[in-house]
């Protein structure tokens, strides 16, 4: 039934299904999925790609038991502060990072397994009025936080066993940083988008703030999802939750902009708009490589090929309710889609 309920709708005469239902996880004890992610987990010498689901007051780890079947390994119970998001830590094993808070992030915690005393543990990484956080390569975490007038942008490193090591401070811009993205192709380069719609560029090694570039007024509150450098240009993938619909671009969800970091000038490269005739707006989404996925206000999930600037699949809300969140799994794990009832469906994208 689930597969029938969640059959992707295809556009533009595509002849093969590129989004296929694989399996479903349902935590009977939870009522609402807050976030979902994948994590490498090693136990008894076996390293597997597992799924992590977060509810308001708990986070569960699921391992593959048989093809398309998942079993819960462990559930971390959190305190009174609700979980807001899972923060994927790239190229790590047995480490899960989560953000907790009410309207904003107030706490970042690490969930882990300690082989020393054979137990699942959690540890506090950071507290504060945290505006944005991103997991970086080499077991690092960058965050922006506000205290009174000042903004702090800090990088924290972890050891393999999850111990926090020295933190490094990056020079903060005047405006609040709302999202980060590592720059592919340039080691030590990091970009961020700010509350006044600027792109800022840092040198992670020295902490220098290298450049500030304005995105433009047509697309307020842009959020950076991905950045890469090619041929001397900095390409940034942005989402536009508050962009206005236009005749030329339709209702844009994602946009790729090329910046010349030397001159701060920019040009739009490609727009990825909502499917034609589809009412609603971009609510939240994620980008992985050249693929973007977003939950729309209609409760549907749309997938775009950013190189083509075209929507390639649409998951309708279905009788079980609208989709609430969408994430890309690591290592070709496909698309993870969560509903308000706490269920998470896995789809293969090919």
């Amino acid at each position: 039934n689930e597969a029938e309920q969640s059959t992707p709708v295809l556009f533009d005469g595509l002849t093969e299904e590129n989004l296929q239902f694989v399996s479903k996880l349902k935590d009977s004890s939870s009522s609402c999925a807050v976030d979902v992610s994948t994590v490498w987990w090693e136990a008894a010498g076996c390293r597997e790609l597992c799924v992590v689901t977060a509810c308001e007051n708990s986070v569960s780890l699921w391992k593959p038991l048989a093809p398309d079947h998942w079993g819960k390994v462990y559930t971390w119970q959190l305190g009174e502060i609700p979980v807001i998001q899972i923060i994927p830590l790239l190229d790590t094993c047995n480490l899960i990072c989560i953000a907790l808070g009410n309207l904003e992030i107030g706490e970042i915690r690490l969930l882990l397994y300690s082989s020393e005393n054979d137990s699942f543990k959690q540890s506090l990484v950071k507290t504060g009025n945290i505006k944005a956080v991103l997991g970086l390569k080499d077991r690092r975490l960058v965050s922006s936080s506000r205290s009174m007038q000042e903004q702090e942008v800090e990088v924290v490193s972890f050891s393999e066993t999850g111990r926090s090591k020295h933190g490094q401070t990056l020079m903060p811009p005047e405006e609040t940083v709302l999202a980060f993205a590592e720059v592919e192709g340039v080691k030590d380069a990091l970009v961020g988008t700010t509350a006044v719609n600027s792109i800022v560029v840092w040198n992670l090694k020295t902490g220098q703030l290298l450049k500030k570039m304005h995105v433009g007024y047509s697309y307020p509150a842009s959020i950076c999802h991905r950045a890469y450098s090619d041929s001397g240009l900095l390409f940034v993938v942005l989402s536009h939750p508050h962009a206005k619909e236009s005749e030329s671009c339709g209702n844009p969800a994602f946009r790729v902009i090329a910046f010349n970091p030397k001159t701060a000038r920019s040009t739009g490269v490609i727009f990825s708009s909502l499917p034609p005739g589809h009412a609603g707006r971009y609510v939240e989404g994620e980008v992985k490589d050249a693929l973007a996925a977003a939950v729309l206000s209609s409760g549907a999930i749309a997938v775009w090929d950013l190189l083509l600037g075209r929507c390639t699949a649409l998951l309708p809300p279905g009788p079980a309710g609208g989709w609430a969140l969408v994430r890309w799994g690591a290592a070709g794990a496909g698309l993870l889609a969560g509903r308000g009832d706490g269920s998470v469906c896995l789809y293969r994208y090919a």
Binding site: L209, L210, G232, L233, N260, P261
Partner: peptide, 23 residues
Amino acid sequence: CSDSDLGPISLNWFEELSSEAPP
């Protein structure tokens, strides 16, 4: 916009900006 509107492009933009920016 055309690429010419972006101004002179440098393949080493990161190193150049790092040497120009305040420490």
